[in-house]
Design a binder for these strands. Structure first.
Lengths: 341, 341
DNA sequence: CTGAAAGCGCTTACAG
DNA sequence: CTGAAAGCGCTTACAG
C-alpha cells in the first residue's frame, strides 16, 4: 500500500532514523512545543538538512484540525480588489495564515462553480468575499454554508460577518458634489452589479438625484463580462450614448477606469473636460491624480477593508466594522467644475 | 485524544453512519472512483446535505501524497504580474489546481522570509516564480530546493524549468526605435532589479546604446521599495534629474507606470510630449493607449507566460518555452517622434 | 527531556 | 457493487 520510498519526499520518520532519535523528538524540534536537548536538536536539524526534509502541511493540518489557509473570493482584479487582496494577505501572513485567491466571475457561473469547488475542497479556515454586492447572494451563501465567511460590501448582511465599504454613500456624495456645482442633473455610466440588479454605486447616484428632485437619466450599462483591467475600454464607446442627450454636462462613472475611458472619448469627440463636461470616477486609483485633467473621485478604504475583513473572519466577536478612517472621502481635482454659462 | 465531536465539522464517518452505509462507500460517491448503487448514492448525498458535510482536503491530500495547490511568488502586483497571475490561475483551475499567491518583496527580506515559510509549509505541488530576475537567485533557490519550481524571467536558468519573457530584447528594440527616429541617445528611468543589480530592461537599453556607439547616460534609479501600484509616483520626481541634462530628447522608462509619471512631470515642467521629449514605456497596460498622448510601449506576453509557466511546472518534459506569439512586440503610438530641428 | 502509541479524515487495494 | 482494514505524515497526551 505504501508507495515506494523514492516516490515520496522524506518524512519525519526518515529524519528520526537518520538522526537516531524518536519520532516525537523530531516533531518537537519542528514545532518547538517542548524543549529538546541541544545535542539531539542539532542531530535532527542536520538530518533534516541532509535529507532536504520539508514538513507536510496536510498531515499537520489533519492532526490540528485546521489549516492556516484563508480563501479570498473576488469578482475581478481591479484596483480596489487588488488593494483589498493585498491588505488582507498582509494581515493574514502576520497572523500566520496563507491566502488563496479565487477570481470568481459573477457573470460566468459555470466557471465560477468549478473555481469555488476547487477552492472549497481545500482545507481552508474560512473565506473572505470581496465586493459581495456583485454576487447573487443566495447561490453563493448556499455554497459557503457552514464555513466562516466574512464579506466586504456596501451594506453588510446581518447573517454574515461583514465589513462595510460604503460605495453607495460615496456615489451619493460624488453626485451631490456635481449637483452642488450647479449641474441640472448627472448622467451615469454604471459599474455592473449582480445579475439584473444595480450596483450600490448606481443606487447612491440615484439617491442623490431623487433627493435633489432632479430628473434621473437612464444609466448607461457597460459590458459586464469585461475583465477587470479592461473597464477603460468600456468608457470610450459609452460616450456615444452619453452624447445622445444634448443636455449632458456632468457624468459620474462607476469607477476610475471607466472615467478615464469616458474622458478620452469626450476629448476624441472634440469636447473638453471639465469645461464642456465634468467627469467624476470612484476608487481614487494612483493614476487618477496623474491624468490630464486630474480626476475628481472618491477614496475608499480598500487598505483598511482587507485587513478588517480578516479580523472579522478570525475574531467574530469584534465583527461588523465600518470604514471610518481619514482616508475615506471625496477627492476633488480638476475634472469637475461648474457647468458653462 | 479526540476532540469533542461538536468542535469538528462532520466527517465521512458521520455521513456513513447517517446514511447507513460503510465508510468506503461514502468515499466512492465522493471520488467517483467506483460505481455505487443509485439507492446508496442517494442516501449518501442526502446525508451529506443534512449534515452539511464538506470534504477535508488535508486528509485527502495526505492519502494521495500531493495536494492540488500551486504557489505563486511575485515581487509585486503590477499590471504584468497581475496578468500572469490571472492566466496561471486560470490554467491551474482548468487542471484542477488552486493557486496561492505570495507577494514577496525582494527588498524586504525579513518579511519575505516569513511569507515564503508560510507558503512552503503548505502542502503545495510546486511554485511558480514571476519576474525571477528581481530576486537574489541564490537565496531563493536554496529555499525552494527540492520543490518543483518554474520561473518566468528574461533569460531563463538552466537549472530550473523556465518560461522566457524577453524583457531585455523588448528594452533593446524600444531603444532602437528611439535611436532610429534620430535621437542622439536615449535616457532611462530604470525599473528596480535584484539588490545591487540592474534589471534586464536596463541591460537591454544599454545593449542598444552600446551597439549604436552612442553615449550611455547614467540611468535614473527609482525607489525600489515602492509598492507595485505606486510606480507612477516615481516618474514625476525623476523628471528633475532628467532635466539636468540639457541634451535630453528621449526617455525610455522601465515600465508604463513610470512613463505616465514622467510624462506628467514633463508637462508640469512646461515641456510637451513628444515634441520636446519622446517617452516610451514597456508593458502595454490597458491605459497606455488611452493616455494623452497615447504611449509608445512594448507588449509582452503576460497572458501566455502565466499559462506557460504552469505547463512547465506540471509537464517538465515540454519545458522551457519562449514567448513567440503575435502579441509580443513594439507598439508605436503618439508619445515618440523625431527630435526637434 | 524522551519514547511508544493513538488518532486526525480520508482513500485504496483486498476480498468478497 | 460493497465492507473491513491498513496506511498517508504528523502531533499530542501519557508515562517515564
Amino acid at each position: 500500500m505504501r508507495a515506494p520510498r523514492d516516490d515520496r519526499p522524506p518524512t519525519i520518520h526518515d529524519v528520526a532514523r537518520e538522526a537516531g532519535v524518536s519520532l516525537p523528538t523530531v516533531s518537537r524540534v519542528l514545532t518547538g512545543s517542548t524543549p529538546v536537548s541541544k545535542k539531539r536538536r542539532d542531530q535532527v536539524l542536520a538530518a533534516m538538512k541532509r535529507l532536504g526534509y520539508r514538513p507536510n502541511g496536510a498531515a499537520r493540518a489533519l492532526v490540528q484540525g485546521r489549516q492556516p489557509i484563508i480563501g479570498i473570493v473576488t469578482p475581478d482584479v481591479t484596483y480596489g480588489s487588488a488593494q483589498m487582496v493585498r491588505s488582507a494577505e498582509r494581515a493574514a501572513r502576520n497572523a500566520g495564515y496563507v491566502v488563496t485567491v479565487s477570481v470568481i466571475d459573477p457573470y460566468d457561473l459555470t466557471r465560477a462553480d468549478t473555481s469555488l469547488d476547487v477552492l472549497l475542497a481545500q482545507p481552508i479556515v474560512g473565506v473572505i468575499v470581496l465586493d459581495f454586492d456583485r454576487y447573487d447572494l443566495k447561490d453563493l451563501a448556499e455554497k459557503l454554508a457552514g464555513l466562516p465567511v466574512s464579506t466586504i460590501s456596501s451594506g453588510g448582511d446581518d447573517h454574515l460577518r461583514h465589513v462595510v465599504v460604503d460605495d453607495r454613500r460615496a456615489a451619493r456624495e460624488l453626485t451631490e458634489h456635481l449637483l452642488a456645482l450647479g449641474h441640472k442633473t448627472v448622467h451615469h455610466v454604471s459599474f455592473p452589479g449582480p445579475h439584473g440588479h444595480p450596483h450600490p454605486r448606481e443606487l447612491g447616484w440615484r439617491d442623490a438625484l431623487i433627493a435633489a428632485g432632479v430628473p434621473v437619466p437612464t444609466p448607461i450599462q457597460i459590458d459586464p463580462t469585461l475583465e477587470g483591467d479592461q473597464y477603460v475600454r468600456a468608457g470610450r464607446p459609452s460616450v456615444n450614448e452619453l452624447l445622445r442627450d444634448p443636455s449632458l454636462t456632468a457624468v459620474f462613472c462607476g469607477n476610475d477606469q471607466i472615467a478615464f475611458g469616458v474622458m478620452r472619448g469626450l476629448t476624441d469627440a472634440g469636447l473638453s473636460v471639465p469645461q464642456d463636461v465634468s467627469v467624476a470616477g470612484i476608487d481614487d486609483e494612483p493614476l487618477a491624480e496623474f491624468w490630464g485633467p486630474a480626476l475628481t473621485t472618491y477614496r475608499l478604504d480598500f487598505d483598511w477593508a482587507g485587513a478588517a475583513a480578516l479580523r472579522a473572519l478570525l475574531q467574530p466577536e469584534e465583527t461588523n466594522e465600518r470604514a471610518a478612517s481619514s482616508t475615506f472621502g471625496l477627492v476633488v481635482r480638476d475634472s469637475t467644475t461648474k457647468p458653462k454659462g
